[in-house]
Design a protein around this nucleic acid. Structure first.
Length: 735
DNA sequence: GAGGTGGCGACCGAG
DNA sequence: TCGCCACCTC
């Protein structure tokens, strides 16, 4: 590090604002470095400054730096910040996600693994269809191994960097055979799935040392973000590339490793020192994001995990408000609670964009959406059904894929009979058989078949027309701009007409989406570039949602921060998720706990944790127990309250005659230490009138001054007048 | 070959 | 509750 310091120019003002460990992390340019960056400790700042520092102090060409992230969002942010810092474009840099960078390398050497450089990248949907096709008649018991499970096993192998010949971990012989068949099939389709992007890179590096050497020499410095989320394959990829210059800097936080389910190995970060001997370890522990109470609550929780490298976050900020933990009757009440607290926060001047609701699983967003809709609070859901996953978009893309890459049977099959052309499963089967017999892609096989007498006349002329159309469109691609060609394809194929004639209410929206797709294409120079973007980025086209509350999963929230964060659904089975626990037990529990830690540490000023006694699952009301994580939150950092009549506290005064919401029927007993009298409390809509004395859990006693449906305006004795939902007050009885 | 219906399992997570 | 798939009918 002293060498690096010596080289630092005195006018390196960008270094001045860093704290000592941050500065150390930026300046340790030589050899392997592991930066353990706790939540909110300025990790992105360190990464970008380090990149700028490399360019400025070492005069390294940007093309000699490999900077890897996990998400497109992180890559985009880094790009933007570095460009801003050095005042130049980062176009063409080796800065991107593992998948994007691996795809770039693979396109250059595709022939080594038997692909062409215009190979298609398949998404999960295509993969599953392919597996299903291969499983038909493979003799695999699809009860015991549904296609999804088989795909899961294959993906695990790929995540570990194991080609079929390399598979070690025991496993079913039949599934291994299927893995081989699957890989062969992908090759015929001139396609790669996500796992292949990395895996083929490994194959290329392993079998062609001269190619590896070329990249080893090129990348003088390697920078890795979110190292705790790397899987074995990614680790091997990095290690091979780093063997050249040996200057690799990995930034990560073992406490935020939440991707074990997709093969991430916390082990990678835990054994960094062994993997890269002589590694420097730098800890960033000063948190600049959250208040003391939020940090204390999160820290107490994560301390329950074993197998940590250990960090102690601290903050110079004030203690702030305690984390509010709230027990509620059911998920509907939970949604009302969150909605009301959001309104309260907004009244205090917190903008909607600074408020987030973070859930464990995406289906949990629905009830909140409904509530926010009712309250008229703008919101946006991140990670919902994505633009590129919509039916009409996938169909349109299938046309474009066939156009670009004729061997893409999966795409071709998708649109063979879309719009309806009278080509049913029987014909498709016949075409497949022919293609297999000829050993050529579907498109090619059909082109040949229509010249024979093997097909029924009607089918034959239909297919002949389709093939001719594609050949024509492909020709036009030479002379006409690709967005225009895309428009022609959709119109001339009858696809646009199909939706125009569709009477369903969604049809107009779909046509809109298709227009949007075509206009999005204009941003790319070539059809190939556009398709690459789509398969790698798959980004959601975000509505104008700057002033909106954010609803998303905890996974999607990593790396983000908000003033106010709601963490609902802290119930056993939901969070920690019983599915995870069933799959991998203690390991999974620790990962779930890290997820809770990630959730809490997203909050700057205030965090809320909610749990309910009853929740609708699969449309059925089911009883729930508070998550063990609730009990693990250190008492001194939380403020706990429960809805009236629920648990020991709050019970008694409120068990009867509680003025809860409306239309609720009989409730079954709640089994978590229920007070006897709380059993089967029937809650009815309580009518209030102006002048009536009431009690509110938070604001205390007050007098109703106005009634507007279930919204009351109350003049509180010890607090300003407020609008409150009737559900949240009770008639004052024991003053 | 198309379209309708009823039963059943899912609802975990990213590129 | 919802969406998918198997099965049915025309």
């Amino acid at each position: 590090m002293s060498a690096a310091l010596a080289m630092t120019s005195p006018d390196a003002s960008y270094l001045a604002s860093l704290n000592p460990p941050q500065r150390a992390a930026v300046e340790a340019l030589d050899g392997p470095v592991l930066v353990l960056a706790g939540a909110g400790t300025g990790k992105t700042r360190v990464l970008t400054t380090r990149l700028a520092h490399l360019l400025i102090s070492r005069r390294v060409s940007p093309y000699e730096i490999l900077a890897v992230t996990f998400t497109n969002k992180a890559a985009g942010e880094m790009r933007e910040r570095v460009a801003h810092l050095i005042g130049a474009s980062v176009e063409g840099w080796w800065l991107g996600t593992f998948h994007a960078l691996a795809a770039r390398i693979l396109r250059r050497h595709a022939e080594v693994v038997g692909l062409h450089d215009n190979f298609t990248i398949l998404d999960a949907d295509d993969q599953l269809r392919l597996i299903k096709q291969l499983m038909d008649g493979s003799g695999i018991d699809d009860q015991r191994f549904p296609a999804k499970a088989v795909l899961g096993i294959i993906q695990k192998w790929k995540d570990r960097g194991e080609e079929p010949e390399r598979v070690t971990g025991g496993g079913e012989g039949k599934i291994l055979t299927l893995y081989r068949a699957y890989q062969d099939r992908l090759k015929t389709l001139n396609a790669a799935d996500f796992g292949d992007l990395l895996l083929h890179n490994l194959t290329i590096f392993r079998t062609r040392p001269e190619i590896l050497a070329q990249y080893q020499q090129r990348f003088k410095y390697i920078l890795v973000d979110e190292y705790q989320d790397t899987n074995v394959g990614q680790y091997l990829w990095l290690r091979l590339l780093a063997q050249g210059a040996r200057n690799i800097c990995c930034v990560g936080d073992d406490d935020q490793s939440i991707y074990g389910w997709r093969g991430a190995e916390v082990g990678n970060i835990l054994k960094f020192e062994q993997d890269f001997p002589g590694a420097q370890i730098i800890r960033l522990e000063q948190n600049y994001r959250s208040t003391g109470h939020i940090l204390g609550a999160a820290g107490g929780l994560i301390a329950r995990n074993r197998e940590r490298l250990g960090k102690t976050l601290w903050t110079a900020a004030e203690e702030g408000e305690k984390v509010q933990v709230r027990g509620l009757w059911d998920s509907e009440e939970e949604a009302r609670w969150v909605g009301d607290e959001i309104e309260a926060a907004q009244r205090k001047g917190i903008p909607a964009a600074q408020i987030a609701i973070l859930v464990r699983a995406s289906f949990q967003t629905r009830e909140f959406e409904e509530r926010l809709l009712t309250l008229g609070i703008p919101y946006r859901v991140i990670g919902g059904p994505r633009f590129y996953e919509r039916q009409e978009i996938r169909d349109a893309l299938a046309y474009l894929r066939v156009l670009h890459q004729g061997a893409d049977d999966l795409a071709f099959e998708r649109i063979l009979n879309t719009p309806k052309r009278g080509i049913g499963p029987a014909t498709v089967q016949q075409l497949h058989t022919a293609a297999r017999a000829l050993g050529v892609p579907l498109f090619e096989a059909i082109a040949r078949l229509v010249e024979t007498e093997d097909l029924k006349p009607k089918v034959r002329s239909t297919l002949r027309g389709l093939i001719e159309d594609f050949l024509r469109w492909r020709n036009q691609l030479q002379t006409i701009a690709h967005p225009q060609v895309a428009g022609m394809v959709l119109d001339e194929s009858g696809y646009t007409t199909m939706w125009q004639q569709d009477k369903s209410p969604e049809a107009p929206g779909r046509l809109e989406n298709l227009k949007e797709l075509i206009s999005a294409m204009a941003e790319f120079d070539t059809l190939a570039a556009f398709l690459e973007h789509v398969s790698l980025v798959m980004e959601q086209v975000e509505g104008a949602g700057n002033e909106a509350v954010t609803l998303m999963t905890l996974h999607a929230a990593k790396g983000l921060e908000f003033d106010v964060v709601f963490l609902p659904g802290w119930e056993e089975g939901i969070f920690p998720s019983s599915r995870s626990l069933d799959e991998s037990g203690e390991r999974a529990l620790q990962e779930e706990r890290r997820l809770a830690y990630v959730g809490l540490t997203r909050a700057r000023k205030k965090a809320y944790v909610g749990y309910t006694a009853r929740r609708r699952i699969h449309g059925q009301w089911e009883d729930a127990l508070p998550s063990r994580f609730v009990a693990e939150l250190p008492k001194e950092h939380i403020m706990s309250e429960t809805s009236r009549g629920m648990f020991a506290d709050g019970y008694g005064r409120w068990a009867t005659n509680s003025g809860y919401g409306s239309g609720f029927g009989e409730r079954t007993n709640f089994s978590y230490n229920p007070p006897a009298r709380a059993v089967s409390v029937t809650r009815r809509a309580q009518a209030y009138s102006s002048g009536q004395r009431v009690f509110h859990d938070k604001f205390g006693y007050g007098t109703v001054t106005q009634v507007d449906g279930d919204k009351l305006t109350i003049s509180f004795d010890h607090s300003a007048a407020k609008q409150v939902m009737a559900a949240f007050v009770a008639p004052a009885d024991g003053e």
